[in-house]
Design a protein around this nucleic acid. Structure first.
Lengths: 245, 245
DNA sequence: AGATAACTGTCAGCGCGCTTACATAGCAGC
DNA sequence: GCTGCTATGTAAGCGCGCTGACAGTTATCT
């Protein structure tokens, strides 16, 4: 009996462009925000010209909660940068569904697939109503070719993601589930809490929900966390982190 | 760690002995070899000037079998490109040791850590007597800043590694050990064989050797592989790949 | 307010992979 | 040859996490 796979009420996907204020000024502010998020600034600061070149290409898109932002298997149309809300990246469906990652404000996606001309390996669902900045493929390529600082910053951005991905592999291999759970909670914490249901957390670790629940209740008995509805509250982050070793 | 998928090209692997000629010519040939290995050529072909700039900075280093190429925890002194032999990247020690990856000819390492100014997360041991091309950190940075094509190619190289790393995570989550073993064998195959002892393969999956051995003998009984001393011979790659699903 | 969907809590049975241990086989050195 | 090291083969016991199921709780919708 299918419990509740939520394959999204797709195509409910309403993309609408944001207006408001002076369009140019808004665009520059968004570009500046992207500049802060992509890669490390020290290596290659953005000039005003870099910023306006970037601003000229960014489009703002609003996605409703539950909507599919992009679908696995299709060629990426460009680069997404999450500005507000969370996007869940998942593979497979039903019982075999695994959540690869949940991205939030400042995170970038689609660039890798564009650079390598490969299809998207995962599907992105909006967990909240979200705002996403979009850069189409050709514009992205043009910016990389003409703006040195942008190319350099993008390199460090991708490098950061690679380091995080490798870290995650190291964190999986040879760890007990308890260690992995402690690590996941510490990593996904936002303002002292992890705003994700146990079902999603379990999928991120590739385990079943009852297995996760058992460990969470154990942590709760020890006073490390408080289990809420659709969220975990972290009470003792230090002890939690020490369990991740 | 560069995914050693495409570099399985025998042509690339036989190019290791770049003998003869003047030192300059040798350097240029090495640089051209690096150019073929790093990233995707279509996006940004190297000019002759790019090649000679790269050639001027490369140093050739020979490491003995079993030697430590670099040690985890230390800041990286630059970028390594494996030309001949295999380097095992591992974390931890003793029972908790896990092999993150084994890199071979054409693979690149150290650049990520340099770009992010972070310590190396793993230690590199030479599994064979190996030749490594070395690019020190300052030279690397200089090349990125002055050579557009090199920066662009490096971006796609890092992107390829990130895609491979994410693939690996997807391949781990929710898979049975049997599926993971089939996948690992298919991925690490070099000329129809996997030249690694079971101990190393087990560490790459984060499992114990007896668990791996049981599955390997099972595969052998089914005629998929032949277990040799320090190596696995692949007999039926297609059926093996189908088991990885 | 009531209906519905989504989330949490829990249990019993079972199988995979871990642990420990030991025996055998291949390989390199003198 | 013999020695020592490393790799492979295998078995018994055990515990973790999976499976499937169901009850209770909280949020969302109309």
């Amino acid at each position: 009996m299918e419990p509740s796979k939520s394959p999204a009420n797709p195509l409910q996907r309403t993309l609408r462009r944001l207006g408001g204020g002076s369009p140019d000024e808004l665009a520059i502010r968004q570009a500046a925000w992207v500049a802060r998020c992509v890669g490390r600034g020290e290596a290659a600061p953005f000039s005003a010209a870099d910023l306006s070149a970037l601003a000229a290409e960014l489009r703002t898109v609003t996605v409703e909660r539950g909507a599919v932002v992009f679908r696995g298997g299709s060629a990426p149309s460009g680069v997404w940068i999450v500005q507000r809300g969370r996007i869940e990246l998942s593979v497979g469906s039903g019982r075999r569904r695994a959540v690869v990652h949940v991205i939030g404000p400042g995170d970038v996606d689609g660039d890798i697939q564009h650079l390598l001309e490969m299809p998207l390996p995962y599907t992105g669902h909006a967990l909240d109503e979200s705002t996403v900045l979009f850069l189409d493929g050709e514009s992205f390529e043009r910016l990389l070719a003409s703006r040195h600082a942008i190319a350099r910053r993008w390199l460090s951005s991708v490098a950061m993601r690679l380091a995080a991905s490798q870290d995650r592999i190291i964190g999986i291999l040879g760890r007990t589930l308890t260690q992995q759970v402690a690590r996941l909670l510490a990593e996904e914490a936002v303002a002292g809490a992890v705003p994700l249901p146990q079902r999603t957390l379990a999928a991120m670790l590739g385990v079943q929900r009852p297995s996760l629940n058992k460990i969470l209740k154990d942590f709760e008995r020890k006073g490390l966390i408080a289990v809420r509805y659709g969220a975990i509250e972290l009470l003792d982050i230090e002890r939690l982190a020490s369990l991740a070793e």
